[in-house]
Each structure stands twice: as C-alpha cells, then as structure tokens.
Simulated assay, not measured.
Amino acid sequence: MTFDKLKPQIEDILQNESKDVATRLTEVCVVLETNIPYFDWVGFYFRNGNKEELKLKAFAGEPTDHEIIPFGRGICGQVAVSNKNFVVPDVKAQNNYIACSIHVKAEIVIPLFVNGENIGQIDIDSHTEDPFSHEDELFLEWINENVSKIL
C-alpha cells in the first residue's frame, strides 16, 4: 500500500477525538506496522516529564524491554539530542545502537516537534537491511506534523 493511500486513514484516526491520544497513537502504529511490509516495529517515544529520557507511549510489533531510553543512548536517544532525522541502513554498523531484537537490521527515527520543541519521536525497526528511502522520511515527517496537532 502506498503512503498516499494510508494518509486518509491516519488522518481519520488522529482526528477521532472520541479516543484518547495514546489509543490514537497506537492505532497509527498498527496501521503502519500492518500495511508497510518492512515496518516490523513502530513506536512513539516522548520526553518523560523533565527527565533527560524518552518513554514509550504507543507501539505495534513485538513487546520491547526498552520502554525508557536515556538521551544520547541508542538511535532514539541520539535523535532526542540532535533534533534530526536518523536513518540507519545497517544497525550492526552503529556503535551506539541498543538492540531491541536480534531480527532488527535497520532503523529510522524522526523527531516530533511541538512549537519548535523536540518532544518525542516516531521509531521504526525493520528486519530488512537498508529498506528506508527519502519517501519514508517525508511520510514519517508528515505523520509527526499531524500528531503534533493533537498533543
């Protein structure tokens, strides 16, 4: 399924105010993990209060032990500090990678901004090596822009 076909479904989920934000974010994760073959784990991490750490708020895929990630640690922690997209074609080539599963071969993390402040991120793990394109980045940036409107 193409990204353009998923956009209306994601918009409908995010605009459904009868559900709380965490439920809507989980539904977005499920749509992405179910419809994009190389998105094997999808999650939203957010800054944990005033702490220098991220906390997992919603996800789809295998459960993870990494519900709290310190700033600077792993790909997610690095994005929390850099405020920049991070595409990792091969996680084995990263010194500061936190292994979530032996099956993960690639990862993409896109920061989520509200009023110019990095408050979280969307994190995608893939069991396919080097699957992510510039179109994936643009699509995930679009998702985060829409998520920021409901926070």
Score class of each variant (00 low, 15 high):
residue 135 E to S: 09
residue 141 E to L: 06
residue 132 F to A: 10
residue 142 W to E: 06
residue 122 I to F: 08
residue 110 I to K: 00
residue 125 D to P: 07
residue 119 I to W: 06
residue 141 E to V: 13
residue 101 S to V: 10
residue 126 S to E: 01
residue 98 I to E: 00
residue 112 L to C: 13
residue 142 W to K: 09
residue 103 H to V: 04
residue 102 I to K: 15
residue 125 D to I: 08
residue 115 N to V: 15
residue 121 Q to G: 11
residue 103 H to W: 10
residue 117 E to F: 13
residue 128 T to E: 11
residue 139 F to D: 04
residue 126 S to D: 01
residue 118 N to D: 08
residue 134 H to F: 14
residue 117 E to C: 15
residue 107 E to R: 07
residue 102 I to Q: 13
residue 132 F to E: 03
residue 145 E to P: 08
residue 93 A to F: 13
residue 117 E to K: 12
residue 113 F to N: 11
residue 104 V to I: 11
residue 112 L to A: 08
residue 139 F to Q: 00
residue 106 A to M: 11
residue 108 I to V: 03
residue 132 F to V: 06
residue 142 W to T: 07
residue 91 V to D: 03
residue 127 H to N: 09
residue 115 N to W: 13
residue 139 F to W: 04
residue 141 E to C: 15
residue 95 N to R: 15
residue 114 V to A: 04
residue 139 F to E: 06
residue 149 K to T: 11
residue 107 E to Q: 02
residue 115 N to H: 14
residue 142 W to I: 05
residue 130 D to T: 02
residue 116 G to V: 10
residue 131 P to G: 07
residue 99 A to F: 14
residue 137 E to P: 12
residue 124 I to W: 01
residue 133 S to R: 11
residue 119 I to Y: 13
residue 93 A to R: 12
residue 147 V to Y: 01
residue 119 I to M: 13
residue 146 N to G: 04
residue 149 K to P: 12
residue 97 Y to E: 04
residue 121 Q to M: 10
residue 94 Q to F: 14
residue 117 E to A: 12
residue 107 E to G: 00
residue 120 G to K: 00
residue 145 E to L: 08
residue 125 D to S: 05
residue 130 D to S: 10
residue 130 D to M: 07
residue 120 G to C: 09
residue 102 I to L: 12
residue 111 P to F: 05
